[in-house]
Amino acid sequence: MDSLYQEHILDHYKHPRNKREMDDADVVQRGKNVSCGDDLTWYVKWEEKGGSQRVADVSFSGYGCALSQSGASMLSLVLKGKTKEEVAALTREDMLALFHADIGHMREKCALLPLSTIKELLKQ
């Protein structure tokens, strides 16, 4: 039944990677899905490397459903070391692919919150 709640998604939900507040972040961005109560904050520290800005460290805090929270955990692993341009180039499909599952359209907003919030962060 619960192909949506596979082992790796539950693992990231129960044991999130990079879930902590970061006091010395360069940028902080909060994103919310008001209708479901998902609330996510990204913290990013940039470093200058090879002429471009890269993610030196990234973390998140917040609460929400298994999709938004495991999605943030999985995306945080993807983000480390990426340049600003690479982060900007991440697509909806890239984000959904992390789940290895068919996210119904009713839950897409939850699954995409980590990506939409990090895109907001880039605008700062």
């Binding site: 039944m1 949506l4 709640y5 479901c36 609460y63 939850c110």
Partner: peptide, 14 residues
């Protein structure tokens, strides 16, 4: 142990 969205999703699947 679970967010309302996950509860409702799993309930719906059942």
């Amino acid at each position: 142990f679970a967010h309302p969205h996950d509860v409702a999703e799993i309930l719906g699947r059942n």
